[in-house]
Every structure is written in structure tokens, then in C-alpha cells.
């Protein structure tokens, strides 16, 4: 009963004035929707960030996994929650791609984006004993034998591959696997010849030398794999990768967005979080709300060109 009364009061307060409500924010637990399953990379980043920001915010953040439709279910669920700052969502690159494929009704515009968390490029990987030593070897082979080079794709469609194919006018035989956990063994076992994943997904095989990196698809080299040249260095103008960030439903008051943004800035600067990301070979890329929103708009346009 007490709870009912409390909720009624909070609701009434919300209706009367959003800003007065924001004053004592946060006054209860915050939920963080993770649109992918417990145990995956997005889940781990979400849980670690939640853990690092709880002392800063003075309230705990509980992670809620809501999976389905390659992230569409969880992100749509998050976008349609009450805009009171108590439900946040981990948004991933799928928010830019799925709506354009007709697989999701909500778009990035249904969120107020708070902070980008990480931005990771794709790395082109082949077995250690592969005849390919540079990206140009691969492109040359694909040009002389169109549709013959077997590519282990982590998802269907695969935007990393499509970006490369489009810029070089080549075609690979993309075999669709379910994520890097299937694609990497397929290349290790020589069932397919090449794959593209983020550095964190293949860090174990890169360190042990089971896989060889032909190039990284970022604008600059990545600190975790300093010896791997970018595609730009090899004369190919392809930059692609994936990203994650935190968003709130679009009507969330700006004061709350700002407060949360500052809290996440601090959380991402904690030794604990930095350590977690460094060990997982993920690059923290703490874009502020506006830059993040612009970035997503840009990426949406880019993906639109590949999709259509």
C-alpha cells in the first residue's frame, strides 16, 4: 500500500513538473536494459558500467537482459519505457541498421543518447598459415576468383564485409555463422578462409598466433594490436566497426540526461572500468550526448547506402 501511494505521488509529481522531479533524481534503482543475452560482450560491458557507476550515482543499476531480433526487442522495449530516467538502454549499432532493413520499428530518434561507451573496428583475420599476407592479397584473389573466397560471416547481412566489397568491387562467398564464437573456429579449422571480427573477439587467437591479422578497419592503428596496419595504410579507404552506448527514452528531461552523462563519464574513467575494457581489448570512446547523436546519424546514412 505504501508503495502504491509512493508510486502515485511520483507519478503525480512527474505530471506536474518534470524538472522538480529531476531534483531528487535518482531516488530509486535504475534499470539498464541489455538487448543481448547474459554472458555476451554487450552484457559484460553493460554490467561492468553499471557496477562502476553505482557509487557515483548513489543508487544501484540493475541489468535486465531482454533479447531477441538481434537487439530489436530489447532496444524497442527500452525506447518505450517511461521517460523518467529510471530505465536506460544499451544501444548498439543495430539501432542504425535494423530499422533500415525493416526489422525494427523504433529508431535512434526514439532515444536521447547519453554517452557512447566503446567503438571497435573490424579486423580482417586469416589462419596463421594462410597464403594471404596483406589485404591486397585477399582483394587480388577475390578479383581473380569472384565469389570463391570463403568468408566466415558473423551475421547475415555482414556490414563489415559489405563495406569492403563495395569499396573494392569484389564479391566473397559469405557463409553465415552465428557470431564470432562460430566464425573463428571455422577459420581456425580451415573450413573458411577469412573472417572479420573486433579485436576483443579474437584477442586470444591473435596473442597465441593461431590467427593472422591482415588489417584493421579503423582510421588509426589500435593500441592492443599495434603491429597490424590499417586498411588506409594499405591503400584501401574502408573504415568500419561497431559501437555501443547508453540511451534513455526520448522524452527524458535534459537535466537527468546531463546528470547521467556526467556520472557515466566518471564511471568510464574509473580504474576498474578502464582495466576491464583494456583486458577485453575494447576501445573506450566516450562521445558526449551531441557528438554521439551526430555519429549515429552519420553511421545510419552509411549503413543505408550499404543496405539499399
Amino acid at each position: 500500500m505504501k508503495r502504491l501511494l509512493k508510486t502515485a505521488l511520483i507519478t503525480a509529481g512527474l505530471i506536474m513538473s518534470a524538472s522538480s522531479f529531476a531534483a531528487d533524481y535518482p531516488s530509486k534503482n535504475i534499470r539498464l536494459i541489455v538487448p543481448f543475452g547474459a554472458g555476451g560482450g554487450t552484457d559484460a560491458v553493460g554490467r561492468t558500467l553499471a557496477n562502476s557507476s553505482k557509487d557515483i550515482l548513489g543508487t544501484s543499476i540493475s541489468v535486465m537482459n531482454r533479447t531477441g531480433g538481434a537487439g530489436a526487442v530489447g532496444m524497442s522495449f527500452g525506447a518505450n519505457q517511461r521517460a523518467d530516467g529510471y530505465t536506460l538502454t544499451v544501444v548498439t549499432r543495430e539501432i542504425a541498421s535494423l530499422p533500415q532493413m525493416g526489422l525494427m520499428q523504433n529508431t535512434a530518434d526514439d532515444f536521447k543518447l547519453i554517452r557512447m561507451v566503446n567503438l571497435d573496428p573490424a579486423v580482417i583475420l586469416v589462419p596463421a598459415d594462410s597464403p594471404f599476407n596483406t589485404v591486397n592479397d585477399l582483394v587480388a584473389e577475390a578479383k581473380s576468383n569472384p565469389g570463391k573466397v570463403k568468408f566466415a560471416s558473423t551475421a547475415a547481412p555482414n556490414f563489415y564485409l559489405m563495406a569492403l566489397e563495395k569499396s573494392q568491387s569484389i564479391k566473397l562467398n559469405a557463409v553465415p555463422y552465428n557470431g564470432s564464437a562460430e566464425a573463428i573456429p571455422s577459420v581456425l579449422g580451415h573450413h573458411t578462409q577469412v573472417t572479420m571480427v573486433t579485436p576483443g573477439e579474437a584477442i586470444a587467437q591473435l596473442r597465441s598466433g593461431q590467427l593472422k591479422a591482415l588489417g584493421v578497419m579503423s582510421s588509426e592503428r589500435i593500441s592492443y594490436i599495434p603491429d597490424v596496419p590499417t586498411l588506409k595504410e594499405q591503400g584501401l579507404d574502408v573504415v568500419t566497426g561497431t559501437w555501443r552506448g547508453i540511451g534513455a527514452p526520448k522524452d527524458t528531461p535534459d537535466e537527468i540526461i546531463e546528470l547521467l552523462g556526467k556520472a557515466f563519464d566518471q564511471a568510464m574513467a574509473t580504474a576498474e572500468f578502464k582495466d576491464f575494457m583494456a583486458k577485453g581489448a575494447m576501445t573506450i570512446h566516450p562521445l558526449k550526448a551531441q557528438e554521439f547523436t551526430d555519429f549515429v546519424k552519420e553511421d545510419t546514412k552509411l549503413l543505408g547506402k550499404l543496405i539499399n
Binding site: G39, G40, A181, A204, S208, Q210, G280
Partner: peptide, 18 residues
């Protein structure tokens, strides 16, 4: 091999890396 065989070992992989 450093690849997870199932969902549980995917979490163990994360734990090792962390």
C-alpha cells in the same frame, strides 16, 4: 582454442580475459 563451446564457457572466456 580460446573459443567458447557453449553459453557457459562464453562467460568463462570473459572471466579469464577480465
Amino acid at each position: 582454442l580460446g573459443v567458447p563451446g557453449d553459453a557457459v564457457s562464453a562467460v568463462l572466456l570473459g572471466a579469464l580475459i577480465v
